[in-house]
Write a protein that binds this DNA or RNA. Structure first.
Lengths: 329, 329
DNA sequence: CTGAAAGCGCTTACAG
DNA sequence: CTGAAAGCGCTTACAG
């Protein structure tokens, strides 16, 4: 089909190996030949066959992205999409390809990740860390594939990019306090997640520093029904609550709004702080203070760290924290 | 690193070619040898090197997915994410990999699609059709890469899976009429998109059949400001409008709600029909009639059609339309 | 049914 | 600086 290195070599009247060296930017080619070859490559728009290159270099030029959740279930909706998009464009900038890997579905353990790793189609991995499969992690590490986490993982210390969850939380709570709220409750996601705990720490810190009571904390899963039930319980237990801090955005927060409204609460009369901004909030008619994560930068940074590893220059630090941006509405 | 076919052959005391034939499920191997080889492959968990296989077979085992829009801009938010997820799992079921390809950003024409195609890393493509780049389509076709569209493309007739836009529209409008609405206006997306025109046709059809006036049609871009302006214009021009049909969901619809509310309209007093369901609507406190697209099936079907092409059995028909499901809230 | 050999299109020592 | 040759791990005629 396409042109091969042999043909380019013939056109340029040089050996295949010379063309190859030019292709790979190696030193030790006369300026004259290099230019001649480059010109021809340009003119005929030659692209080396990636399979052949991969076979001899033992590198595929493709990066895998492991999404933490399967299909329908995605807490924050846009979050992972945006991360993937950022990563995809950064990976492309490096001339590599991105392969999306979703968690294996029941009954199909063989496909996907394991096959991709075992067949060496993947040079490196970016992994959504909030929920990892130990068996797969073991495989990845035993095959010596470089990887970086998005979000810190509590069981496995490794390169990761995350936001400053605690600081973000603290800023939100400080804002709420500045606005005059005192009886602030917290509806929090599952405790297993590292980021949940960090956000909670931030909440407690500021509350206690301000001499306020930090005991109104409710944990719940991300399922809407659970979130709604929890919200209902909260206002029944502490009817004088004047503000609520929610540690996750997306439909989780929406479900809570809904339960409150259904419980007869006017959402304008209560303060809200939410970790994770969401475009949807633009369309709500009551004020919310949110922490916006620098999603694009996170994706870009994670990709950079991965390529640094691939190049043999791993960063000194494991954890890379990016600041969040507080949004007032 | 990993085991090679040579080692498997040695373990089984056969020739490499025999192992290869077993690997590829070819006929003409004695039961005894086949079983012996299979057993070993199992035991040592052998995975053929994909680059080597790709090089000799001239097939990579990877499918590309071209997203129609770049990064931040995505009309329906969840729509493309869900399609991609469905496709990803179906592709995995076939033992292949999925590569996500986002539209090239300004100034980086070289990476991504063109490189992927030219270097033959991609066996086939699934393409979000609502906005295609003619130059790239030309490249794809000249390289003879099989593809299938998600959504019909107006300029290029080819295999595609779509929903029945017109019928869905008709059902929504019929419902609105059944609910007693008569002065129904339509806020529609850009006319360039085929599906927009089909949805509009559905609207006009039913209105005219019912003897109602179908002239209250407003086109707008998907940008929120435009949508909001259009909504405002609509109620100023036709203040007696009692229902609005919106041809696209997501933040487009939300922006319209917002503009109406801002314009002093009580959203409970007006009927709404929207093409494209959205989980968000669960959280709104006024009734909406929507058309829910069978997103998962669309992804699955598109993938199936692509693999059928790859196998040399292209379907007879170009267009494959799936029915929508009307949701009443 | 079985296997030796050539070939896929690159890269990488190596010798000159 | 340059090029001939071997090798990467598969598959595919081909001969037996």
């Amino acid at each position: 089909m396409g042109l091969t290195i042999k043909e380019i070599a013939e056109m340029a009247q040089v050996a295949k190996s010379t063309v190859s060296k030019v292709l790979n930017g190696q030193k030790g080619i006369s300026e004259e030949k290099r230019n001649r070859i480059l010109k021809i490559i340009q003119e005929v728009n030659y692209q080396p066959n990636s399979a052949a290159r991969a076979l001899s270099k033992k590198q595929n030029g493709t990066i895998g992205f492991i999404l933490p959740h399967e299909a329908g279930y995605s807490l924050s909706g846009l979050y992972w999409t945006e991360i993937v998009t950022a990563v995809a464009s950064e990976v492309a900038r490096h001339g590599n390809n991105l392969m999306i890997i979703t968690p294996a579905e029941e009954g199909e353990p063989f496909h996907n990740l394991e096959a991709a790793i075992r067949s060496h189609v993947i040079d490196g991995l970016i992994i959504g860390a909030e929920q990892i499969d130990t068996k797969n992690m073991y495989l990845i590490m035993s095959e010596n594939i470089p990887f970086v986490f998005i979000g810190q993982n509590q069981t496995l210390q490794h390169f990761c990019v995350d936001v400053d969850n605690q600081e973000g939380s603290e800023k939100i709570i400080s804002q709420l306090i500045d606005h005059g709220y005192k009886k602030i409750a917290c509806i929090s996601g599952p405790q297993e997640y590292q980021y949940t705990r960090e956000r909670l720490d931030g909440f407690r810190n500021i509350m206690m520093n301000a001499g306020l009571e930090a005991g109104r904390v409710f944990h719940t899963s991300y399922h809407e029904e659970d979130a709604m039930k929890t919200a209902t319980t909260l206002i029944e237990t502490f009817p004088d609550t004047d503000a609520i801090y929610i540690t996750a955005g997306g439909t989780f927060a929406l479900a809570i709004f809904d339960a409150l409204r259904f419980g007869g609460i006017s959402l304008k009369d209560i303060g809200f702080g939410i970790f994770d901004d969401n475009k949807i909030f633009d369309f709500l008619d009551f004020p919310i203070i949110t922490a916006e994560q620098p999603i694009k930068q996170m994706g870009t940074l994670a990709t950079k760290i991965l390529f640094d590893q691939l190049a043999g220059n791993p960063p000194k630090e494991f954890i890379h924290r990016l600041p969040v941006n507080i949004v007032l509405r």
